[in-house]
């Protein structure tokens, strides 16, 4: 299953501020709900999203319970030059999802 979808605009001019969006497939179980047996369903959420541009962190976000399943994040980025964007999601169980996208600046 594809675990993440990121969108990076095409045809970007140098110096332009662009919008990056990133969505990851995740149940985001809050840890506050009870299951059919009345017991608490253990918390299972994404802890952190980190976005690196050619190895340099350009965006980082810490997640908390009560975010939607399959959390969707958008953030602005000033595009100075072409390079590789690497998105890393880490969850409560230590599972890591990595997605890469090319940024082409003309």
């Amino acid at each position: 299953m594809s675990r993440a979808v990121v969108r990076v605009p095409q045809q970007v001019r140098a110096g332009e501020v662009i919008e990056i969006t990133a969505m990851v497939a995740h149940p985001m179980e809050t840890g506050y709900r009870t299951g059919d047996d009345g017991r608490i369903v253990p918390r299972h959420i994404v802890r952190e999203l980190q976005c690196e541009f050619d190895g340099q962190t350009v965006f980082r976000m810490t997640f908390f319970p009560a975010l939607t399943a399959n959390p969707w994040v958008a953030f602005p980025l000033r595009a100075e030059r072409s390079g590789l964007l690497t998105f890393t999601w880490t969850d409560d169980q230590g599972r890591v999802v990595i997605e890469r996208a090319e940024l082409r600046v003309s």
């Binding site: 675990r3 979808v5 399959n70 969707w72």
Partner: peptide, 17 residues
């Protein structure tokens, strides 16, 4: 409106697989 914003898209890609 945009597939990259639509959480159901994960199911579509799983279905394609």
């Amino acid at each position: 409106a945009r597939d990259s914003d639509n959480p159901a898209w994960f199911a579509v890609e799983e279905g394609a697989r």
